[in-house]
Simulated scan of single mutants.
Amino acid sequence: MDRHYLAVHRPASDEKADYTVHQAMTDYWTLHGSTRVSADAIRARLKLINRFIDHEIAIGVMREPVLPSILNDEWLARFRLWATSIDTIAPQRRAADDRALPPKKRAKSTAEESIIQLKAALRFNARRMTDVPRLKHLTRAEVTPKRTYRLSSDSLAELLHYTCVGDGSAVHATRLIPLRRYLIGAISTMARPDAVMDMSASRARGQWNPAERLFDLNPPGRIQTKKYRAVVPVTELLDDWLSATDDRLVCAEVLRCDDEGDWLDQRPIQSVKKAWQAMQAKLGIPIGWGPKLIRYSVASILRRRGVDKDQLAVALGHQALNSTTERYATLDPEDPRYLESVRALLDELSAELMQKAGTFIRAKSTEVGGNGRRRLL
């Protein structure tokens, strides 16, 4: 009923004059934001704006009702200061070794994303207000210093080696198997972290095509977003790990032994963040770089080795496939030459890493028994 009323109602002049910023954000969420694939992100951005307005009302800077007309450059400046310097994300934090860390501040780009979302909410409800304020957001390039740190192939091999040996104990190395699986997936596909965590070898999911050596990073049923998930070639190393996986690529492995043999149970996990942070501290990866560093680093290595730029753009999801791009054989997933430049260089890099890190980065030899369980060979 609320959605239908909002969709068909035509506000009178007095209603437009009284229309508030809170109403604009609520109506935008009800009619549009809640239906989007990025609904969680939209809600978080609008929530930040709401919290700032509540903060300003509480300290007496603003008064209710908060109308769109009071939003100006001065208001944006106050919001940016509050969002990035005053309102901390995590007041109390601890490192992997239990050291106390300073409060984590919100990135400037995050504040700008909230401003962009607010502008979208106001534009969406333009007919419900007297006038839409002209707000200018800053681009990511304007607020984010260019970061050029990248991992070399030697460094990537060192990361893989670390996940095999850990601190030297067999127990620790076993705990690092999910991180090793994550690295294999990230290096082999250059996918964003969330896409790597979504990778599945299950036939029911339909992402992996072993016959064509292709992997669809976008699971069936998931709507593509601006962060496009591509169909990517499967390297020999990734194929080895997918063949040894029941469902999610990034999973923990538990060895169980009985009279019939040694069985490997695989359990999906939610995150490799803690394992990454421990490795980061151990190997000296600069603070501020998360698992997405793998994507940047592999792409940089391929660029230096002369990869076809158009093919790389498709593999990274920077260029979505459409009727125009699919006219070219190397950009058509149904053509044997699909992303052939990317495939060749990823295979080359995988072979190089196996040589540098040791062949033990391959998956354990297993087979699925008649009972559906995976047996170690």
Score class of each variant (00 low, 15 high):
V132S: 00
L101K: 12
K226D: 09
D265G: 09
I287H: 08
L345G: 06
A157D: 08
E340K: 10
G33D: 01
R303H: 11
K104S: 12
W75N: 06
R123K: 09
K282A: 08
R374K: 08
R375G: 02
V307N: 08
A201R: 00
A275S: 11
S169R: 13
E236F: 13
L122S: 00
R106P: 00
T245H: 01
R303P: 04
A315V: 06
R80P: 03
S85C: 12
A173G: 10
Q23V: 10
Q207R: 15
R375P: 03
A39M: 06
Q224N: 10
L353S: 08
R63K: 10
E64P: 06
S350K: 05
V196P: 05
T110P: 04
Q311C: 05
V250G: 05
R229Q: 14
Y28V: 00
V342G: 05
L353G: 06
R222Y: 12
I187F: 00
A313V: 05
M62H: 06
T189D: 08
P68C: 10
L321A: 07
D18M: 11
A344T: 15
G33T: 02
D240L: 12
D247W: 07
K16R: 15
W241A: 02
A363R: 02
D335C: 11
A107V: 04
G206I: 13
D131T: 15
I187K: 02
K108G: 14
I269V: 10
I89S: 08
S114H: 01
D310P: 04
